[in-house]
Amino acid sequence: MPALIGPTTRLHRAWLDAHAEWGLGSHEDGFGLVPADEVGSPTGFAAWVARLAAESDRVTYRWLVEDDRVLGGIALRHGFDDFVRQAGHIGFGIRPSARRRGLAAWALGRMVDEARGLGIDRVLLVCEAGNVASARTIERLGGVFEERRDTEHGPALHFWIPTGESGT
């Protein structure tokens, strides 16, 4: 049974296994990883996990874990700034070997609930135009297509998912 947990140094090796599965150059949505993060060493990994914890007033990071195996990551951005307008409130990614199990939809549903708890009435989700699996997952969770936008990374689809809150 999968669980959503906060980032932890305890799963360093398991996270590195997931990271390696994505392969070099692949973007791992939902983990908050930036090019400056050095995650290979225990010290660098601990610094990265500490940075994620320090951002918890602005972003909720969760890892999808099953039997101490990191299956993916998901992040909920709390505000609505220029970055959220471009990348969305929620970003998620599932490691290739764990896809097609419904994990993304399961995690996304829980993060929509988390957004509701924060008083966010609807969340913006953005995916690459060619990412049919993500678009279907978003639509399955009630995502309403808004528009297709050209970005520096290529065309992107923008969806809104209502959280059930009103007035915010």
Results as ranks from 00 to 15, higher is better:
V132C: 03
G109D: 10
L33A: 05
L124H: 12
E152Q: 11
A53K: 15
V39M: 04
R148D: 07
V70R: 01
A36Q: 14
F45A: 00
L16H: 04
L33V: 12
A104V: 10
H89G: 06
F80S: 12
S134K: 00
A50E: 13
W106E: 07
V65M: 03
S56H: 11
G91R: 03
I120S: 09
A87Y: 14
R101H: 14
R140D: 01
P42E: 08
G88Y: 02
A14I: 01
E28H: 14
F92V: 03
G109C: 06
G130T: 10
G109I: 05
G117Y: 03
G44F: 12
V144D: 09
H19R: 14
G23F: 10
R95C: 08
A135P: 03
W106M: 11
R58N: 10
H158N: 09
R101Q: 15
E114Y: 03
V144I: 13
V49L: 01
R77Q: 09
A3W: 08
R116M: 03
A14C: 06
R95Q: 11
H12T: 05
D150E: 15
R101G: 02
A50S: 15
E152K: 15
L71N: 02
C127V: 00
P35H: 12
D67C: 07
E165T: 12
E21Y: 09
F145R: 14
T137Y: 00
A115G: 12
V65C: 05
R116I: 01
I138P: 00
L52V: 02
D81H: 13
F83M: 09
W63T: 00
V59Y: 05
D17N: 14
G73Q: 05
G79R: 13
S166F: 12
E146G: 09
A133C: 08
D37Q: 10
W22E: 06
E128T: 03
G91C: 06
I120Y: 08
G72D: 04
V112C: 02
G109P: 07
R99W: 05
L64K: 00
D121K: 12
A107E: 06
F80K: 09
L16E: 06
T8G: 03
H19N: 13
I90N: 02
D81P: 06
L33M: 13
L76V: 04
A87Q: 10
R62T: 01
D82I: 06
V65G: 01
S97F: 09
E146M: 13
W15C: 00
E55C: 01
G167I: 13
H153A: 15
P155I: 07
G23H: 13
F159Y: 15
G91Y: 06
T163F: 05
A14W: 09
R122K: 14
F80V: 10
W22P: 02
V49W: 00
